[in-house]
Simulated scan of single mutants.
Amino acid sequence: MITPIEIRQQTFKKALRGYDKEEVRAFLQALSQEWEQHLEAHRNLKEELEKVQAQFNTLKEVEDMLHKTLMQAEQSSKDTIENAKEKAELKIREAETTARDLVRQGMDQRSALQAEVEELTRQRDKVITQLQVFLKTQLDRISAIDLIELPPNTAQTPPPTTASSQDNFFDSEINGAENSSFEDIIEEL
């Protein structure tokens, strides 16, 4: 590459009837100045290109980092969603298991209560049957008492009873003061 200084210092051989030296020097000087301006512009453009290239590289690195960050965020988001789905499915399975256990316990309790109700019903029926038998026996005994002939009463006929005399009668019965024959009957029962 020719420099502006080389253009200025360029010399030519002298020839007969050659070019005008001053005119050639003026042309070379103008050419040298213009060439110097072009080289300066070229240097400026090269520096500008290097700055732009550095900015481009920086922006490219930022873009790559942003792309990586975006990909990581996307993957993290997918992982988070997947984890949330897995946790939700686990919670659902646990809830279903708990619900099945509760239903099973409820059914077991229901069966136990039904068995208990059935047992209580059998016991009630047994007690009722025993009471019926007992009461029938007692009624039969009472009927038998009605059939027994009482010895003739030689004592005077008691006066008609009033409510207060009946109470006295029952009080005396409770205390065991009168009618031992009635007590004998009750003992037989």
Results as ranks from 00 to 15, higher is better:
55 Q>C: 07
55 Q>L: 14
56 F>Q: 09
56 F>K: 08
57 N>S: 11
58 T>K: 13
59 L>Q: 11
60 K>E: 14
60 K>Q: 14
60 K>C: 07
61 E>L: 05
63 E>A: 10
63 E>G: 04
64 D>L: 06
65 M>G: 10
67 H>P: 01
68 K>A: 15
69 T>F: 07
72 Q>V: 09
74 E>R: 10
75 Q>E: 12
77 S>Q: 08
78 K>V: 02
78 K>T: 03
78 K>R: 14
79 D>R: 04
81 I>N: 08
82 E>A: 15
82 E>T: 13
83 N>T: 11
87 K>S: 08
89 E>Q: 13
89 E>V: 01
90 L>I: 02
91 K>F: 09
91 K>I: 07
92 I>P: 00
93 R>W: 01
93 R>M: 03
93 R>D: 08
96 E>P: 00
97 T>C: 09
97 T>H: 12
101 D>M: 13
101 D>K: 15
102 L>F: 05
104 R>S: 10
105 Q>C: 05
106 G>N: 14
108 D>C: 09
108 D>M: 13
109 Q>N: 14
110 R>H: 11
111 S>E: 12
111 S>W: 04
113 L>G: 00
114 Q>G: 03
115 A>G: 02
115 A>E: 05
117 V>Y: 07
117 V>D: 03
118 E>M: 06
119 E>L: 05
120 L>V: 10
120 L>N: 10
121 T>M: 10
122 R>L: 07
122 R>W: 03
122 R>Q: 13
123 Q>Y: 07
124 R>P: 00
125 D>E: 14
126 K>S: 15
126 K>G: 02
128 I>V: 15
129 T>V: 03
130 Q>G: 01
130 Q>H: 11
131 L>M: 12
132 Q>I: 05
137 T>S: 14
138 Q>Y: 06
139 L>W: 00
139 L>K: 09
139 L>N: 09
140 D>S: 05
141 R>S: 04
141 R>K: 08
142 I>D: 01
142 I>C: 06
142 I>Q: 01
143 S>A: 10
144 A>C: 00
144 A>H: 06
144 A>D: 08
145 I>A: 02
145 I>K: 01
145 I>T: 06
146 D>C: 04
148 I>M: 15
